[in-house]
Each structure stands twice: as C-alpha cells, then as structure tokens.
Design a protein around this nucleic acid. Sequence first.
DNA 1: GTCTATACCTGGATAGAC
DNA 2: GTCTATCCAGGTATAGAC
Lengths: 192, 192
Amino acid sequence: MSAGKTRNEIIKAADQLIYLNGYEHTSFATIANVVKISRGNFYYHFKTKDQILNAVIEQRKTNTRSMIRQWEQQHTKPAERIKCYIKIILQNWPKIKQHGCPVGTLCNEMTKLSHPSQKQARGIFTIFRKWLRDQFRLLGHEEQADQLAMHVLSWSQGVATMASTFKAQQFAENEVDQMCRWLDELTTGKSI
Amino acid sequence: MSAGKTRNEIIKAADQLIYLNGYEHTSFATIANVVKISRGNFYYHFKTKDQILNAVIEQRKTNTRSMIRQWEQQHTKPAERIKCYIKIILQNWPKIKQHGCPVGTLCNEMTKLSHPSQKQARGIFTIFRKWLRDQFRLLGHEEQADQLAMHVLSWSQGVATMASTFKAQQFAENEVDQMCRWLDELTTGKSI
DNA sequence: GTCTATACCTGGATAGAC
DNA sequence: GTCTATCCAGGTATAGAC
C-alpha cells in the first residue's frame, strides 16, 4: 500500500547505502541527501529507522526472486542454474571486493546487533536455500538436497568473506572453478 | 610499554564488547562501565577510539599465536594440528552461534566501514593462513600449500556465517566432519 | 506530501581539579 | 592516574507551518 515514488526512492537509496556502509552506519541524513528530501519529510514515509530496514529487506527478497526467475528462464538444467548462483561472486566482484556479499554482511550485522530484523534478513538466504534445494532434488539428490543447498551457500559465503578481506580475485576464481567441478562430479553420480 | 593494569583491563573489556556487539556499536561509555572507570580517565590511556581498536587487534594476534603454539605442543602430526583449527567452531559454538567468528565478523565490519585498521584486522587471518600453509607444506603439498590454507580458512568462515545465521549446530557438525574427511583424503595422497 | 525548526540523546573528545 | 564538568558533532524523532 502507498507505493509512492518518494517512498520507493528512499528504499532504493537506503538499500544501496546499507550495502555500502552497513545498517548502523547509515543515517537518515545520508539517505535524505541522496534522495534530496528533508529529514523531516522522512517520517511521513517511515516512522522509525527499523521500518526502513524492513522495507529494504522486503525489496531485496523481491529482487532475489526475480533474479532466480531469470536463471530459470535462461537455463533448464538444474546444474546450470546452480552455477548461476555460484558465479554471482565473479560477476559482482568489484562490489563484493569492497563491500562483501550483500546478504551475508547484512545477516552478520543483524546477528551482532541482536537486531529484531535478524529473522527477516535470514529470509533472503532462505529463498536461495529453498530454491537450491529444489534444484538438487531435480538432480536426484532427494535425501541430501537441503544439506547440499546449505553447502553451496556456505561455500560461497566463505569465499566472499575471504576474497573481500584479502582483495583476492584469483582466489575467488579458483574456488568458483572448484565449486563447478564439485557440482559436475555430483551430477555424474559421485558422492559428496 | 606502559603495560598498566587499567590499560589492560580496558583492552580486555573492549575486546569482549567488540566481539559481542561490533566495533561501531561499542562506545566509550559501555567500556567505562565494564572497567568501572570514568570516561575521562579513558583518554589518559588511549587518545582515540581507533587506538583502542588497534590495541585489541594486537592482543588478538598475541592470543592467536599462543593458541597455535598450544596446538603444536599437543600434536606433532600436521593433519591433527589442522583439525584443531577446523574444530574451533564446535568448541566455541555457543559464542559463535550468537556472535559469529570473532575474526571474520571484525574483518567484515572493517571492510564495510572502509576502516583504516582493515589491514591490521586481516593480519589475524594472515597468522592462521601462514601457519596452515606451513602445515600443508609438511604434508608434502608444496605448490598448493597457500591455496589449501585459504581453502580451509574460507570453508570455516562460510560455515561460521551460515551456522550462526541459521543457528544450525547440526549443519556445523556435518561440515566439520566433511572437512576432516577431506583432509584425510588429502593426507592419503588424493588430489583436491 | 514536503518543508523548517527544534527537542533530546548519545557519541567522541578536551580541560583542569585532585 | 583518576575524577568531574563540559563541548560539540551527529543521530533519531517530533511539531507544526505550508
């Protein structure tokens, strides 16, 4: 409801700034500057800072779903779809190098702050998790599907953290290669 | 120099609080409360907040080195030593569940804030990295030693992030098992 | 819906007495 | 070495005019 233009611009700006600088470090003043509205106007659209965060998380969920839909349209084979996920880190490398994985770093911050929106943030991961699980099921790994999904998420997260910490693109490329090979072995019927 | 009692207590308290709540969220007031000194007294020991951070990082490096020394005394086989590292996540599970990996979350925050101490924080990882590299060399993996070290660090980081995000102890245990089996295969002369 | 003005608090940091 | 008092910037949030 009330899908106003300004409101959407606030969410969009907040989304960016939270990714770049973190939630706690993002202030109303900074967002207002970007959107070019006064701080006062702000409170017409959102009553608290946490409400903005929740709106941002919802938008990220929407974006995630549409990204997944694209992958599904581009590839019919589940293995190829999973590789789309695996390769995001290379596609977004310049940003990830400087600011980490948008989902992982947000969840880390929420965890640190014991923030009420912790669960909502985790929900972005859950979208990927369920979708990856479905793809692994299609590959015939019924029993281990969820475990495999978590394995892929976890592997990617580790690579994102270490690659951004050490600014190591080469390392990221190596690991992505390994993940793809691991996935190929899984597809040709090997055990994990 | 000036290894005063109060100074050390400040570092100790700051270390804890930064781990529990993050650097940005940790204020002088909170630290002063824990140490039971006035905020003013603070500035006799540290001129800026960043100086406290650097002192905390130095202390963590010292602690890291002494932890590694213990592992070396407890185990002579490199593979067993590496497993000590792999298993920290289970040993410290209650804390990691709530606050993540102390090193990874700090590095993530430094990256987000583009903080000057980014490099110093990364240095804690570097201690582990070099040590793991040495252990893999002892295992006869000269060429890939550093790559393998980064792989272990990265794997652990991913598990820490996902396990703490989903509060999933079972998942952490599964992954630790897999890492140990992976290491065993490596030891018996398989390729990665 | 958007603005200005402002209240109120917390944070880092300083000055100076003891 | 420790304290109190204080400054100032910046943060969230509110009130009320337009």
